[in-house]
Design a protein around this nucleic acid. Structure first.
Lengths: 182, 182
DNA sequence: TAGCGTAGAGAACGATCGTTCTCCGCGGCA
DNA sequence: TGCCGCGGAGAACGATCGTTCTCTACGCTA
């Protein structure tokens, strides 16, 4: 495995679990086994590493969600079933993007952009699901689903109970039903 | 005005706008005009100051919301109208509690507790609104409203558009309607 | 084998953090 | 007036941060 992958593996785990500011570059070096010199050859600054972490997390998170939903019959309920499994994971600690935005959004335009791109990708995907479900206003339904997802993620992070996904899933089902009949 | 108030005013503004870790104690001293010695007499550590900031923010935030809603006819829609006004404020930067949890939750049990207490207070208030609205399962409706509020707050923070409150308010109205007829 | 380029380990650097300490000047009291 | 104690300004401290530099050891080529 090349150095960049090893660095992103170590940084991704540490940044997500403990927060970006709480993790120093030397800890990433120790966890990855990559020397500091090479670390700075791959990523010229911590900010660059954080942005790369967010981009890779976006790819993997979206890929996991879409793969799970593609295999399910009822697409939109499957989104919330996937969320519940995610919330129950041992190292779940909320939305890595919202957390990074909270930590660094005020200071780093690159982080703001990376987070917005992720949310935009998710919104577009939810819109495709809303269209497939025959919603009268798929843009509005997608926005509401996004709100339920982000809200359930915050609630699960703070309460440390994966049940937040279930009530959000019920709300989503009610909204989908609502959007079908104008 | 006494020193504690001046400190909490300055710290509250700085912590919320820029994040806790991005603000040093010396900057709080400069903004408040309170000497460093007295600062540490009032709050023996930064963590204590952060917890006091969260408690005061909880009180004021809840007081503002409940006062606004109490004056309105339709209580639950009023919650989302209040949210929209909040999102449109110049220095809006998301939920101070979720942001503090993202920054410090992994490292500070006191911060985790303060954040959970706020969310619990909000949940209890929403439950009282759900009961008043005649919901069949007020606990579930309160949980869903909380999810919509947190989700809309995250979306508004990231997108910097207050419109997130509107679609969430429409979703809330649909859910209230749903809960009335089983 | 001699010379060279490279890579890793980790010391070093300047900045900044939370926290404590020192010093000085001012007000109350005999 | 002389003394004492308190409070403020800010220097100082040790730790740690992101980043760079030095030194050493090794592999390749002639």
């Amino acid at each position: 495995m090349d150095h960049e992958q090893r660095l992103l593996d170590a940084a991704g785990d540490l940044f997500y679990r403990r927060g970006v500011q709480a993790v120093g570059m030397d800890e990433i070096r120790a966890a990855s086994g990559v020397s500091l010199k090479r670390l700075y050859q791959c990523f010229p600054s911590k900010e660059a590493l954080v942005v790369a972490y967010l981009r890779r997390r976006d790819e993997r998170w979206m890929a996991s969600l879409t793969a799970y939903v593609a295999d399910a019959g009822d697409r939109i309920p499957a989104v919330f079933a996937w969320l519940e499994r995610w919330f129950a994971e041992d190292d779940f600690r909320g939305c890595g993007f919202a957390n990074a935005f909270a930590e660094l959004g005020a200071g780093s335009a690159a982080v703001r952009t990376a987070v917005r791109e992720h949310k935009e990708r998710l919104r577009a995907y939810l819109r495709s699901l809303a269209e497939e479900a025959g919603a009268g206003d798929p843009g509005l339904l997608a926005e509401q689903l996004l709100t339920l997802i982000d809200g359930a993620t915050v609630t699960a992070m703070i309460s440390e109970e994966p049940g937040a996904a279930r009530s959000a899933g019920q709300a989503a089902a009610a909204l989908v039903h609502r959007h079908r009949r104008p």
